[in-house]
Write a protein that binds this DNA or RNA. Structure first.
Lengths: 154, 154
DNA sequence: ATAAAAGTTAAAGTAAACTTTATGTCAAGA
DNA sequence: TCTTGACATAAAGTTTACTTTAACTTTTAT
């Protein structure tokens, strides 16, 4: 089977112009053309699936291109690609952990509003909760803070 | 205790200029000034903590401002703020779920490279894995696909 | 008392990831 | 045959979230 850019765009849930942009940026190598028109074939979906994964886990376009370039070079870059994948895996794990932390924060906030709504005012809570200020921010798990620092130093 | 913009920036792991930008965008209401210089106090950290949470879970600046504005209006907006918080909670849950899905994808890729490196070549795997193309992308859990559509329609 | 460090604003600049526009080709249906 | 619709490119435009710069003021340390 072969697919038009419109069809593939729909499958990936992006605009056709986005796929053209990706192509321009080197993220869609070896796409067949008929009279200049892109034709996506079954084999292409292996890569589209990976692209979809990397893109949706926030890998920057430039880095995805790097990966593509490595893949083009063949078996000599297997280790490098392995490392890149492992790195991305770590980022995904960190993101999940961080989001799980913020989930708890937001659940606290949810409780806060449930309580305030019952009481008809926030006053009750504001009086209840002390201004432990700095300490509060320090409660953010150390591992998460450290990661952010890494991020800033990139 | 009171803190300078530099100190708070360090605690939140952002640049001081970012905090000034947030202030300009209305995300830091009621910050005290001494001779024009911002002074953060213990009570401010309650909000900074929430801001940190919303920001790090990808709530856009504009939406955070909306939330701030609602909070300024007092008890009459409790329900609205509650809804906004619940909505953000749902987004966090979705993100976690989606990332857990992509984690599996990337773990497959990791296995792929481990196997290829052992064999010295990708050839083995490429032959092994059929071009199930379209079907592969369809394997993305329905709930995740649906959410992306929502996202596009915002 | 003075120089360096830290703070301020307004405005311009930047980076990433797209999207839109203008212009053109080409194949298929009325 | 003609027009409509899908595709193409190149280049400009958009949005978001900051960052940088320039020109000043205030604070702090010697």
């Amino acid at each position: 089977m072969s697919y038009s850019i419109k069809e593939v765009a729909k499958m990936m849930n992006v605009a056709p112009s986005t796929l053209r942009y990706y192509d321009q940026e080197g993220l869609l190598p070896n796409i067949k053309r008929l009279n200049g028109i892109r034709v996506f074939e079954d084999a292409d979906f292996k890569w589209l699936r990976v692209l979809n994964c990397l893109k949706n886990t926030n890998m920057p376009i430039k880095k995805i291109r790097q990966y593509v370039e490595l893949a083009q070079e063949g078996d000599t870059t297997l280790e490098e690609r392995y490392d890149l994948i492992k790195e991305q895996k770590q980022k995904i794990l960190k993101q999940i952990e961080e989001f799980q932390y913020y989930l708890k924060e937001i659940e606290y906030k949810q409780w806060y509003y449930e309580t305030a709504i019952k009481a008809g005012t926030e006053k009750v809570l504001d009086d209840l909760i002390p201004d432990i200020a700095t300490l509060e921010l320090d409660k953010i798990p150390k591992e998460i803070k450290e990661r952010k620092e890494e991020k800033r130093n990139e």
